[in-house]
Design a protein around this nucleic acid. Structure first.
Length: 427
DNA sequence: GACAGCGTTTGTCTGT
DNA sequence: ACAGACAAGCGCTGTC
């Protein structure tokens, strides 16, 4: 018995390692992304890792331990950062059924599958293994895999589906199987809307249509992605049905420069980016509050305040921006505020390094400064309790959608005088 | 190896 | 009118 346990300790080390590292994650952390977990750091945690008791692993047979090892071989530092990212999101799940499902996860592979549970096999050639390959290509997207008349998700993705798409777990909560959930093909649009509305990107895997040889699985391929502000199109647009394209949601990066605060907006769908520098803290908070962003990245330069404490938000400076950001999900990034943000976007959307983004920054010469938060609030350009909404007064009651956003954007970011005159002339 | 059973959602059918 | 069974396609599991 002792020999078996000892053997499990050695063989299962990678799994324990990842689990122990994940357990160090604080209960509440604003920066979802952490720099790579370095090897020296791993060494320092070795003692804790070896003392970490996982009775489930100790109970496992040598056969299942072998399965665990197989699923861990490919787990690297980057995968760990992705798993940390998912773990933080899963900790926010509140539905009782989701909470129960999350307990069945192990963070030893990108899908969070416990290979010791029923249907948890990651053996090469199985559907789970194939889904893991797809997941590793887009680790921060929810993976929906077409299986017959359903789109199915397993592990972490199934938990997200249950929490945000209102689906029921496969086999209910009594099942001793891995978390699984799915929606019928006809409900894909609704499910994608639910996920993207909650800020998640989705990777959709289709199966090749047509007959297959007996006792062989269908071939599958990634047919597309759905992002917040960028709908999934493949197979959803019919001859008699128009797809409603929402306003694109940018990835936003905020940094500090010698001339003030800087905001960089990247639109993946358009492959464009724009930068605005020299903003006051109030102006950048106003921009943040009026911009629905897909992902928010904060540059390390924000942490180096003039007090020299490296504690952002302390002693007032940056406090307003900190208050705005701390209520949101964000990640820290370092390096060049533009180039490294673009790298993050490529990583996020699974784009090749060769993909280029066009700079569409509009020159701020001869252009009025954008409204500060205080002004925008007082005139009712930003919805505020007790202050009438200016846009509702200016525009007809039946006016909604893009026109409202356009006018609001004009108010918050006044164009150059000649452009403003031209717009006035047209009206 | 062959085969039955199971299962996400939802519309349809059947029985009470 | 209502409740329950069933089907859809696929892959996995368990049994023989």
């Amino acid at each position: 018995m002792y020999r078996l346990a000892t053997r499990n300790v050695v063989v299962s080390f990678p799994r324990w390692c990842s689990l122990a590292l994940l357990r160090r994650s604080p209960a509440r952390s604003f920066g979802a992304f952490r720099p790579s977990l370095t090897l020296p750091y791993r060494s320092r945690r070795l003692e804790q890792i070896c003392c970490f008791k996982n009775h489930k692993v100790l109970r496992a047979s040598s056969k299942t331990t072998k399965k665990s090892k197989a699923s861990n071989d490919a787990l690297n530092d980057k995968d760990l950062s992705h798993l940390l990212w998912w773990k933080e999101r899963l900790e926010m799940c509140r539905k009782p059924s989701t909470v129960q499902l999350v307990k069945r996860l192990t963070y030893s592979n990108l899908l969070g599958l416990d290979v010791n549970l029923k249907n948890g096999s990651l053996k090469e050639g199985t559907l789970n293994w194939e889904m893991l390959q797809f997941k590793s290509r887009f680790p921060r997207e929810v993976l929906l895999c077409r299986v017959g008349d359903f789109y199915e998700a397993i592990g972490i993705d199934a938990c997200i589906l249950v929490e945000y798409a209102g689906l029921n777990p496969f086999g209910g909560l009594r099942s001793e199987s891995i978390p699984r959930a799915g929606c019928p093909v006809i409900n894909l649009r609704q499910t994608l809307d639910d996920l993207t509305r909650n800020g998640y990107s989705v990777c959709i895997v289709e199966e090749v249509q047509g007959p297959t040889q007996a006792r062989t699985r269908k071939s599958r391929f990634i047919s597309g992605h759905a992002h917040p502000g960028s709908p999934y199109v493949f197979g959803l647009v019919g001859v008699d049905h128009d797809l409603d394209f929402p306003e694109p949601m940018p990835v936003v990066g905020i940094s500090r420069s010698a001339s003030g605060y800087c905001i960089n907006l990247v639109l993946e769908t358009m492959k464009t980016y724009s930068s605005e520098d020299g903003l006051t803290e109030e102006a950048i908070v106003a921009k943040l509050r009026t911009c629905r962003c897909h992902h928010l990245f904060l540059h390390a330069s924000l942490r180096n305040n003039s007090s020299g404490t490296c504690r952002w938000g302390e002693f007032g400076e940056g406090g307003l921006l900190w208050g705005e950001c701390s209520a949101r999900q964000f990640e820290w990034f370092e390096g060049n505020p533009v180039n490294d943000l673009l790298l993050k976007v490529k990583e996020l959307y699974g784009l090749d390094d060769e993909v280029t983004f066009r700079n569409v920054t509009v020159s701020s010469e001869n252009r009025p400064q954008p409204l500060t938060l205080g002004t925008a609030t007082q005139i009712g350009a930003i919805p505020t309790d007790g202050i009438p909404c200016l846009l509702k007064v200016l525009l007809p009651s039946n006016c909604s959608g893009l026109p409202v956003l356009y006018i609001r954007d004009l108010l918050l970011n006044p164009p150059a005088y000649e452009i403003a005159s031209a717009i006035q002339g047209e009206l």
